[in-house]
């Protein structure tokens, strides 16, 4: 699979197969005019994907194998930070200390930066404010959360995903 993964036709066909499977699964009815509608919307979706440049980037499918490990780590982080944020919200004194952290990311390329930014936003207590020229601006609810961002573990793990 990795040998022809840079082939554009391969990427178009793969996306088409996934979309067709999704249509057949959700529709559940196999009458001719419904299938024709499905083929029409499949073509439209592929054309729109081509227009927004989905097939221009190097294939993200090869990086998908590394995603489950990242997700498992992210899930643990989400649980930990959720409990922290819930405790802060329920505390009568409301002990927040909003901090903005700015740092240069080691992630190169749009895909890994999107993964990093979304992972930071996904875990409660930290929200990505801005991604611009390899520089991230992150808003943290507490100074403690800001320390976790400064340690750069999320950065390193997101960069690993798209390495070859």
């Amino acid at each position: 699979m990795p040998t022809n993964s840079n082939n554009k036709l391969y990427r178009v066909l793969l996306l088409g197969a996934v979309l067709a499977a999704a249509w057949l699964f959700w529709s559940g009815l196999y009458k001719p005019h419904l299938l024709a509608l499905g083929a029409l919307s499949l073509g439209l979706s592929l054309w729109l994907a081509h227009r927004i440049g989905t097939f221009r980037e190097a294939s993200p499918f090869s990086t998908m194998l590394k995603l489950p490990r990242f997700w498992a780590w992210l899930l643990v982080e989400i649980v930990k930070s959720s409990i922290d944020v819930a405790r802060v919200i329920l505390d009568p004194k409301l002990p927040i200390s909003p901090t903005v952290v700015e740092f240069d990311t080691v992630c190169k390329g749009p895909i890994s930066q999107v993964i990093l930014g979304n992972a930071i936003t996904l875990s409660p207590g930290t929200v990505t404010l801005d991604v611009y020229a390899d520089r991230l601006k992150v808003h943290c609810l507490t100074a403690q959360g800001a320390e976790a961002i400064r340690s750069g573990e999320a950065d390193r793990r997101a960069a690993q995903i798209t390495e070859f």
Binding site: I89, T121, S123, P124, G125
Partner: peptide, 10 residues
């Protein structure tokens, strides 16, 4: 936003 992301994800 942090409270919203708490309900959105967890």
């Amino acid at each position: 936003l942090h409270a919203a992301s708490l309900t959105d994800t967890m």
